[in-house]
Design a protein around this nucleic acid. Structure first.
Ligand code: ZN
Ligand code: ZN
Ligand code: ZN
Ligand code: ZN
Lengths: 131, 131
DNA sequence: ATCCTTTTTGATATTTGTTATCATTAAATA
DNA sequence: TATTTAATGATAACAAATATCAAAAAGGAT
């Protein structure tokens, strides 16, 4: 895969951010360094980079996909209110395949534990609503 | 929540199906019993029923949301090729909260293990491609 | 039953995130 | 340098989901 200026900066900025941004959030950040870049270029490169395994595409709930520049194995927690995604530190990995008793004929590659919760911001909002 | 004929049949058919259908797949099935029903009614009721906890909304990869009439705790495997979703039988549940070392300030409700694999149909297609 | 209020429905328009198209530009190769 | 190949920017097209709204259905009061 060719290393174009746009591709390099998209990857750089995604790796810098720890927020698991959506394509348009990343577009806004990248635009500061490349004011003429098109949103299509951002979508295209995120797709290419994730195919190449250089980034991760996160397809959790909510409308928009999110992206992660950190490809080392780790778990995520998704806020059920706002959709924010954060990394979660877990105890040394449980091998997912050993948890399966009947896979219904599927050939299983991978198992990820995905947590659901309420982010700090949304917890504060909840408290205010009650009072 | 009012029990209308449409709502009842949507719930009935979703519970009968074990395929975790998309809204439009379920629409096609329900239409056999209610030929005049609108797709909007299906979307609306799936939303209301999932808010009420009577069904589950599955928001895995792929474009379309899927729905599950079985709300007893169980895990899913998603086919990475075709997006099909099936139930997976696992060993007696690991308590997700105990796996978390640092939740980054989130209040964690739930942790589900989501498996990725290749469904039987797509395994056959892969084999044919190789030969 | 009749009247009134609230909820739901069907049809369809709108929104939204994403993907496709295509002429132009940039990069790689010979 | 010329030729091929890939990437870009602008924007159209697409598809799933949601919003709108008049009409119909359901429920409650009298
Ligand atoms: Zn939140
Ligand atoms: Zn992450
Ligand atoms: Zn499949
Ligand atoms: Zn299921």
């Amino acid at each position: 895969m060719r290393i174009t200026n746009q591709r390099e900066i998209i990857l750089e900025e995604l790796r810098r951010l720890k927020s698991h941004p959506t394509a348009d959030e990343l577009y806004e950040v990248v635009k500061k360094r490349l004011p003429r870049i098109s949103i299509a270029t951002v979508y295209r490169n995120l797709e290419r980079l994730s195919e190449a395994g250089m980034i991760h595409k996160l397809e959790y709930g909510g409308r928009q996909k999110r992206f992660d520049g950190d490809v080392t194995p780790h778990c995520h927690v998704v806020c059920v209110k706002c959709g924010r995604v954060s990394d979660v530190e877990t105890v040394p990995e449980v091998d997912a395949e050993h948890l399966v008793v009947d896979s219904r004929g599927y050939k299983i590659f991978d198992g990820v534990i995905q947590f659901e919760g309420l982010c700090p911001k949304c917890q504060l909002l909840e408290e205010k609503k009650i009072n």
